[in-house]
Nucleic acid binder design. Sequence first.
DNA 1: CTCCAGTGTG
DNA 2: CACACTGGAG
Length: 274
Amino acid sequence: MTNRQKSASFQHYLLNWYSIYGRHDLPWRQTTDPYHILVSELMLQQTQVERVIPKYLAFIKEFPSFSKLAQAEQSEVIELWQGLGYNRRARYLHQCAQQVAGKTFPKTLKELEQLPGIGPYTATAICAFSYNQPVIMLETNIRTVFLYHFFPGQTSVKDSDLIPYIIKTLDTQNPREWYWALMDYGSVLKKLTGNHARRSSSYTKQSKFAGSLRQVRGEIIRLLTQASELTEIELQTKITGDKRHFPDAFLQLQKEGMIRHGKKSTSGGCRWHL
DNA sequence: CTCCAGTGTG
DNA sequence: CACACTGGAG
């Protein structure tokens, strides 16, 4: 078989697989609206599909467009994000909306990557899923597929080694469907055969969560979502994680603009909110 | 307990 | 380049 034939047969196999086993029902696959695609991709960057579905539906119901989201208070946006983790991404999404409000949403990788929270992957996802552009997309499920099929046993495989295979096999007539198929297949492959993306040079292991500073950050955000306004002392008292991290976590969140204080300070100190 | 993933920052 | 960022599933 020639390489062209191999690519064609891989394509046919995968597209057939997708027609039978693919997640055709996912809500963000029923739309090409770049706003919907962006919301879903920001959420999916960090969270399993099943957990994203209800959050995504609630989010676009509350904020159906860039302009509606742009008008919202940051606290409302973070509250709707609760339970997804990585709260600063809610802030990036809000900032994206404010930056593009009243303009046409960007259509090129370069322009998209200028927006907060949009890096190389998310930019390609918007180009493929919203605009059906034949971009070169690379994320963990796609890496899993190519490592499994074309790099068995090899370790520290660089993305630059994968890219030629992505280009060769890309269905340029329908990149949108092709990448949906690759991602669904990759996630199934991962369940069946283990995480081959670990053999990618891009793979990194995350640090411990229990007892960490980010556990305390998460707690502060959650407390302020529930109580709306609390003093620094009240927050510190309610933290169940490692209290030694509280001062750093509190300062970080202020600097990032995740939490802000009211104008008046009382005898108990400033009251803080999202 | 271990595992997870793209973006931003230093 | 290394590391931080969350919260849930297994």
